[in-house]
Design a protein around this nucleic acid. Structure first.
Length: 170
DNA sequence: GTAAGGATTGGC
DNA sequence: CCAATCCTTACT
């Protein structure tokens, strides 16, 4: 059962606030067999709107990016390199086109492996973290210190956006 | 319809 | 360092 699920309000702030605030929170997954697993979030990255050239939403409102333009609290998943489902949590208000990439959870390292551990697939696209019975986020004790760095793997975005310190980790 | 490239990973 | 692997996007 859900213990202290985050309400939609948590996600309706600027992605630069939400991304570090997610560190230490519990990503919860209820699998088909009923087993519930909780994973402590250890690494996140912020992707902030249509003007952020590293953000997929900078390509416009396409079938792939559509969910990022909606109100926060939804899941944005996409397949990368034809192999890995990456998990993002949509933030902000309608039109903000921002999302947090979950790059790491306790026990695994790397965003591709997060998706594998959670057994994500395209059916999670657009799922509400508020209503879902198979994926949500629960509150947890605040973390004491947060590390910051440049975002990973976005060299194509150029210096202005590639140099933003929008990666947060424990 | 065709082609290029990617918010990665794992193996050499 | 580099291949795997296939969807999304930008073109013709």
């Amino acid at each position: 059962m859900k213990k202290n699920p985050l309400s939609v309000d948590f996600f309706l702030h600027d992605v630069l606030e939400v991304a570090p605030a997610l560190l230490g929170k519990l990503l919860v997954r209820r699998f088909n067999d009923g087993l519930i697993q909780r994973y402590r979030i250890t690494e996140t990255e912020a992707y902030r709107g249509a003007e952020d050239l590293a953000c997929h939403a900078s390509k416009g409102r396409t079938p792939r990016t559509e969910v990022m333009f909606r109100q926060g609290g939804l899941v944005y998943v996409y397949l990368i390199y034809g192999q890995y489902w990456l998990l993002n949590l949509v933030t902000g208000n309608e039109g903000d086109a921002s999302a947090v990439l979950i790059r790491g959870i306790e026990g695994t390292s790397g965003p591709g492996r997060v998706g594998r551990e959670l057994r994500l697939d395209r059916s999670f696209y657009g799922e509400s973290l508020i209503n879902s019975e198979r994926i949500w986020v629960e509150d947890a004790a605040p973390v004491t210190s947060i590390q910051i760095s440049k975002r990973i793997g976005i060299n194509y975005a150029g210096d202005e956006w590639g140099s933003k310190l929008w990666r947060f980790y424990l």
